[in-house]
Design a protein around this nucleic acid. Structure first.
Length: 445
RNA sequence: CGGGGCGUGGCGCAGCCUGGUAGCGCGGCGGUUUUGGGUACCGUAGGUCGUAGGUUCGAAUCCUAUCGCCCCGACCA
C-alpha cells in the first residue's frame, strides 16, 4: 500500500478519553474511532488487523476439525425464555422490539441458537461428535464500557459449540479446544496462560480461561512461574488423539494458575516460593464443559447406540477476537507506539523514502515496493511528501516490524537501512540484500 | 448502579470564580524555507462554546433540566 493513497488518520496528541496504552495507541494509529461508549468503527488499519486475527482463528479452528458457520446478531427472545436465560441474563442483554412488538435481542452469546439448530437436525449418535463455530459480532450492554476494544459493548468473538454423545467425548473436545487455543495464541505471538476459571452465567462443570499477562489486566492472577516456560512450539498435534490432547492439557494445567475468582491460598502455598507469581491478566478466551445444561432444558437429544434417547453433552468456547487486539498492544508497545508481532502486523515492512521525488531514492523505493509485494509481504510505502521525522514517527506508531529507510545519503554508498522496530537495531545493506533479508525473515513466520 | 470529573474549530487545552458576544498550541490549506527523528517563518480557512429552558439590556461565563463522554468502585468475554 502506498501511504499517499491509504486512509491512515494518525493523531499526534493523545486523545483525552484514552487511559491505557492500547486504547490510546489504537486511536492515535488511526485503527479505530469511537462511535458511542464501547462501540467503535474499525478504520482500515484496525480492520486489517482484525481480519488477520480472524483468519488465524479460522485456520486453527479448522485445523482442529471444527466446522465454520455464521449465526445472526439478532435473536428471538423465545429461545432464551426456553433455556431460562432471558430473565437470568439481566441488563447486559440488549433487548429490542421489532415492528410487530416481538421481543428480539442482540446476541451476547449463542448457546440457545446453536442448540436449536442442532436439535432440529441431529437425532442420532451417528452424527456425533460435532463442533460448530462462528465468528460474529456480539453485544453486551456493559454498565461501564472502558479501555477501548478491551471492554467494549460491541465486540467480535469466535464462539464454538461441541456436541457429544457422552461425557468422555465432550471432555476430549474440551482438551482439544485447549490445545487448539494454545496454538492460536502462540501463532499471534502471545503468551496466554490457561487458568482454572469460574463458569459464570454460562454455567457448567469445567472451565479454563486464557490470560495474557499485562499490568493493565482486569483480573488478578496467581501462578507458578513454570507455566510461562511452557510452549507448544512447532510440535505436531493430532487433534483426534485423545491421549495427546489429554497429555497437553495436563502439561499446561498442572502447574498452579488461577484468577482471583478461583484462587486457593492453601494450594498456592505449595508452589515453591521462588516460583510463586502474582500479576494481572487480560482474559482473551475461555472454554467450558457444561454437560447437559442446555440440552436438557432445550431437549437436544439423540438416540444412543443402545437405542435410548439421551441429552447430548456440550461445551462452548470463546475467543475475544477484537479484544485480542487490545491485549496484543498492551503486551507489545513502547513509548513510540505499537510493536506488532510479525504474524499479526497489518503491514510487515515499511518503506520510508527520505527524499520523495528524489532521482536516487524514488526508483529504489519503487523496486523495493514491487519486490516486497511479489514476495507477498504487504509493504507500506510512505511516499508522502513529508519530512523524515514525520515518516519515522508514523512508522513507529503503527508498528511495522521492519523498516527499510531509503535516503540520498545512504544511496551514495549504495546502501539502505533495515531497522527492527522492536530492538531498534539497524543494518546497512544494498537494496537487494534488504529485500532478501525481509523475505527470509518472513518465510519463517 | 454508587462516587468523582469533563463537554469551547479535526486533536489537546485556556477563558467561567468576578457576565460585555471567543483565544492558544498542534493539525489543515497557500507560500517561503528546510531536508536522516513530528523544521522555522509568513499568510489563511475553520467554532450558533453538548442541548433546551430561565435570569439579565447583554450568557461560553449565573440558575434549572436534559443528553453525552471519561475516571474510581461494584459487575463482566
Amino acid at each position: 500500500m502506498r501511504l499517499s493513497r491509504y486512509f491512515l488518520p494518525v493523531l499526534k496528541d493523545n486523545p483525552a478519553e484514552a487511559a491505557i496504552a492500547s486504547h490510546r495507541l489504537m486511536l492515535r494509529a488511526g485503527m479505530i474511532r469511537q462511535s458511542a461508549a464501547g462501540i467503535y468503527s474499525w478504520l482500515p488499519l484496525g480492520f486489517k488487523v482484525l481480519r488477520t486475527l480472524e483468519n488465524i482463528v479460522h485456520e486453527e479452528q479448522q485445523r482442529a476439525g471444527h466446522i465454520p458457520m455464521l449465526m445472526p446478531t439478532l435473536q428471538t427472545a423465545d429461545l432464551w425464555r426456553e433455556s431460562g436465560r432471558y430473565d437470568d441474563y439481566g441488563e447486559e442483554m440488549l433487548r429490542i422490539k421489532d415492528r410487530h412488538g416481538r421481543d428480539l435481542l442482540y446476541g451476547p452469546t449463542n448457546e440457545e441458537l446453536i442448540t436449536d439448530i442442532f436439535r432440529n437436525s441431529v437425532h442420532s449418535y451417528k452424527s456425533l461428535p460435532l463442533t460448530l463455530y462462528h465468528i460474529q459480532w456480539k453485544f453486551r450492554d456493559e454498565r461501564r464500557p472502558r479501555f477501548g476494544v478491551m471492554r467494549g459493548r460491541e465486540f467480535f468473538m469466535k464462539d464454538g459449540y461441541n456436541f457429544n454423545v457422552d461425557e468422555a467425548g465432550a471432555l476430549h473436545a474440551y482438551n482439544r479446544h485447549l490445545v487448539s487455543y494454545l496454538r492460536t495464541y502462540e501463532r499471534m505471538g502471545l503468551k496466554a496462560i490457561p487458568m482454572q476459571a469460574d463458569t459464570g452465567p454460562i454455567g457448567g462443570e469445567h472451565s479454563h480461561e486464557f490470560l495474557v499477562l499485562a499490568d493493565t489486566g482486569e483480573s488478578e492472577v496467581f501462578y507458578d512461574s513454570a507455566v510461562t516456560d511452557l510452549s507448544l512450539g512447532d510440535r505436531a498435534v493430532d487433534f483426534d488423539s485423545v491421549e495427546q490432547c489429554q497429555g497437553i492439557f495436563e502439561e499446561f494445567t498442572t502447574p498452579y494458575a488461577r484468577t482471583d475468582e478461583t484462587h486457593d491460598e492453601a494450594l498456592f502455598a505449595k508452589v515453591p516460593a521462588e516460583r510463586q507469581r502474582t500479576a494481572r491478566g487480560i482474559e482473551v478466551g475461555q472454554i467450558f464443559y457444561f454437560g447437559t445444561k442446555y440440552s436438557e432444558s432445550m431437549k437436544a437429544k439423540v438416540s444412543s447406540p443402545e437405542g435410548k434417547e439421551v441429552p447430548v453433552h456440550m461445551g462452548s468456547h470463546g475467543i475475544g477476537v477484537s479484544r485480542l487486539i487490545g491485549a496484543l498492544i498492551e503486551a507489545n508497545h513502547d513509548d513510540k507506539g505499537i510493536i506488532w508481532p510479525e504474524s499479526v502486523a497489518p503491514f510487515k515492512v515499511g518503506i520510508v523514502n527520505l527524499k520523495q521525488g528524489g532521482e536516487a531514492t524514488d526508483p529504489v523505493c519503487e523496486m523495493l515496493y514491487q519486490g516486497l509485494q511479489l514476495c507477498g509481504l504487504d509493504p507500506l510505502y510512505d511516499d508522502r511528501d513529508e519530512r523524515a521525522g514525520t515518516k519515522f514517527a508514523s512508522m513507529d506508531l503503527i508498528g511495522c516490524p521492519w523498516r527499510i529507510t531509503v535516503g540520498p545519503r545512504g544511496l551514495k554508498n549504495g546502501v539502505v537501512e533495515l531497522t527492527n522496530r522492536r530492538t531498534g537495531e539497524s543494518e546497512e545493506m544494498s537494496p537487494e540484500a534488504a529485500l532478501d533479508c525481509c523475505t527470509q525473515i518472513f518465510s519463517a513466520v
